[in-house]
Design a protein around this nucleic acid. Structure first.
Length: 503
DNA sequence: AAAAAAC
């Protein structure tokens, strides 16, 4: 374990780290921070959730602390593929640049340019941006990139997926060649390799190897339906939500239109749900995500905009209303739960149309999720209303385990190195009846008694642009403990666990 | 196959 104090960070930065409660660095942080502080380029091959954001934010804060911002001449640039991810980087700056005079601005689309332009005119040290808005502002002559000493590219392979590579290339060329570059990607397809050989100078390659994909902290279930009729799927979803002791959950759909329909339907049935996807107004996206993070919204119905990288600690359930067409997305989706050592349950609804997609998912995760069977009656619909004393809805469907699945004994984590191929130990099959179901691992230790706070004002979006954000008090802070790895919240627990493999 | 991202 590497202590933070060993990494060459200044007392001010260390204090900001200490304030978050972390003392030990994750592997990517332990490796990347000294290299970056030495002024060298970094090629970080790491998934989201390895503590990557702090691995580049901290050296950035440290390296920039000395100089001063000039009008329209930012000194550092961080690029992220989605608005929400860019916002997360901004939150990281908010934490770690606290003791410095460093200023930053979030440059993302979907919000007015006014505040962004004002901040640029005034002079800002760090731009945290999605490529589209950055180039838009650049073309309008709102900033020069010739003063950029440091550039960070986050989630490069996702940028590739999204068609951003020409933009990234262009932005690279707008910055001076002598800049220092910190480049992160989960995978290294040829296009990305080409980019790094072209724009990075003798980078130090740092690899947090691809982690194991599932763990005993995440219990995965699969529900087969005889039909792909949307009504039946929605009824099944309601039944599952009603059955599970959902504290908060994300429902993933493959299409934006489906997100809207499912969210609307859930609301009509009395569930506390709201949609999030790329076609929705940015202020709504921001507000919805903030409400979900704050525990004010129970169910987030999402497209894959929310599948990757989003740091929402403490999601108790993930529902795959649709089987992810891209198997990687399934792993990212379920990785939204089971974080920070908490238990999580995931449910995947499978219809006869989903065979191909399901095959790909099962191949990737190398295990067979337990299959649940819903009563025909449940497909008529369950409602969340009228709780009994035991906290369960009277019309909670009984979920019977139809499979002969066996469970692996809990194994000690084998670290993040390589895929664990532990064979599951054969144990007597556990048939889950209505009785044993209630004795299932407690997912939500917390009662429903969460204080409700008013939703955060939309106006905060504007505040963010200027780098003078409102109080952070309502953004559920990371739990403070003394001796846990730094950035632990960012690591889905399942990344550190053994894999269950169907015997 | 779809999502994401600039106006």
């Amino acid at each position: 374990m590497t202590e933070f104090s060993q990494l060459g960070l200044s007392p001010t930065t260390l204090q900001a780290v200490a304030d978050t409660g972390y003392t030990t660095a994750t592997p990517i942080q332990a490796q990347a921070i000294p290299v970056a502080l030495a002024g060298r380029d970094v090629l970080g091959i790491a998934q989201t959730g390895t503590g990557k954001t702090a691995a580049f934010t901290l050296p950035l804060v440290e390296l920039l602390a000395k100089g001063r911002a000039r009008a329209r001449m930012p000194r550092a640039l961080v690029l992220a593929p989605t608005r929400e991810l860019a916002d997360q980087v901004a939150m990281s700056f908010e934490k770690y640049a606290k003791g410095t005079k460093l200023s930053w601005v979030l440059l993302i689309g979907g919000v007015s340019m006014g505040d962004q332009v004002a901040a640029l005119n005034k002079g800002v040290d760090v731009l945290i941006a999605t490529p589209g808005r950055l180039l838009d502002l650049f073309e309008r002559g709102k900033m020069l990139l010739t003063g950029v000493e440091l550039m960070v590219v986050d989630e490069a392979d996702r940028m590739l997926d999204m068609g951003f590579i020409p933009d990234i290339e262009r932005i690279f060329k707008l910055t001076p060649p002598k800049r220092q570059t910190l480049f992160f990607s989960a995978t290294m397809p040829p296009e990305i390799t080409r980019l790094t050989t072209q724009f990075l100078k003798d980078p130090t390659r740092i690899e947090a190897s691809r982690p194991a994909m599932t763990a005993e902290t995440i219990t995965q279930y699969l529900v087969r339906l005889p039909t792909s009729d949307p009504k039946t799927k929605r009824a099944a979803l309601r039944a599952l939500i009603g059955r599970a002791d959902v504290r908060n959950g994300i429902v993933f759909c493959n299409r934006k239109s489906e997100v809207d329909v499912v969210a609307k339907s859930l609301k009509q049935h009395g569930f506390d749900a709201a949609p999030i996807h790329g076609d929705l107004d940015q202020s709504l996206r921001t507000k919805t995500l903030a409400a979900f993070r704050a525990g004010e919204l129970k169910l987030l119905v999402a497209s894959d905009v929310a599948a990757r990288g989003l740091d929402i600690p403490d999601v108790s359930h993930v529902f795959n209303y649709d089987v992810a067409h891209h198997a990687d997305d399934y792993v990212h989706r379920i990785g939204r739960t089971g974080r920070a050592g908490k238990l999580g349950q995931t449910f995947m609804i499978v219809t006869p149309n989903d065979d191909k997609a399901l095959d790909k998912v099962l191949k990737l995760i190398k295990m067979a999720p337990e299959e649940l069977v819903l009563d025909a009656a449940d497909l008529g619909g369950a409602k969340p209303a009228a709780k009994r004393e035991d906290g369960r809805s009277p019309d909670v469907p009984k979920i019977a385990d139809s499979s002969e699945e066996t469970r692996a004994d809990a194994r000690p984590a084998r670290g993040r190195s390589g895929r664990n191929r532990n064979r599951a130990e054969t144990a007597p099959a556990v048939v889950e009846t209505a009785e044993t179901a209630s004795a299932a691992p407690p997912i939500a230790a917390e009662p429903a008694a969460r204080p409700t706070k008013p939703a955060r004002p939309v106006q905060e979006t504007a505040l963010r642009q200027s780098g003078r954000r409102g109080s952070n008090a309502d953004r559920a802070p990371a739990p403070k403990t003394t001796a846990k790895p730094f950035g632990d919240d960012d690591i889905p627990a399942f990344l550190r666990r053994s894999v269950l493999i169907k015997a």
